[in-house]
Amino acid sequence: MKQTKQFSTISRRHALAMLGAAGTAVFAGVPAYADGAAVAAKIKGLTGGKSVGEGTIELDLPEIAENGNAVKVAFSVDSPMTADNYVKAVHVMADGNPTPDVASFNFTPAMGACSASTRMRLAKTQNIIVLAEMNDGSFKQAQATVKVTIGGCGG
């Protein structure tokens, strides 16, 4: 399921509302989760407070994950990937895990395209935020929500 999303502010209330709507359970015994504020702080640290643009980042995430232990996260950033115009790094963050960081990737023009795919752990339904850093020091961002269903069964 392709979800192409642009940046929008995540409020705590919004995140909680989505949680409720999905009717999911959270892992017991985990003391604290990151939240929108932790991700925002992380982004501020990475960007140095610069404004973040709304370029095209395509996210490939499931709308519903039947288990949070391995959720595919794939992205592609529209870029010519030439020596003077390329994506330097991409940071993947999640606002409902114990810590916001998931993974970061360093790209080079030799790759010819900017994309990657991996699998991540999601403790509950949450937003995935992808921040791309261009070689000129500008930033782009996209986000999407993944509903994580955690069953009471399944042996």
Binding site: E66, G152, C153
Partner: peptide, 23 residues
């Protein structure tokens, strides 16, 4: 569904199976 789990017929044609629950 039983809670959030979709029930199958419990067929075992895929075993041994990699399960996310088991990692």
């Amino acid at each position: 569904y039983i809670r959030a789990d979709m029930l199958s017929q419990g067929n075992i044609n895929g075993f041994p199976t990699y399960r996310l629950k088991w990692n």
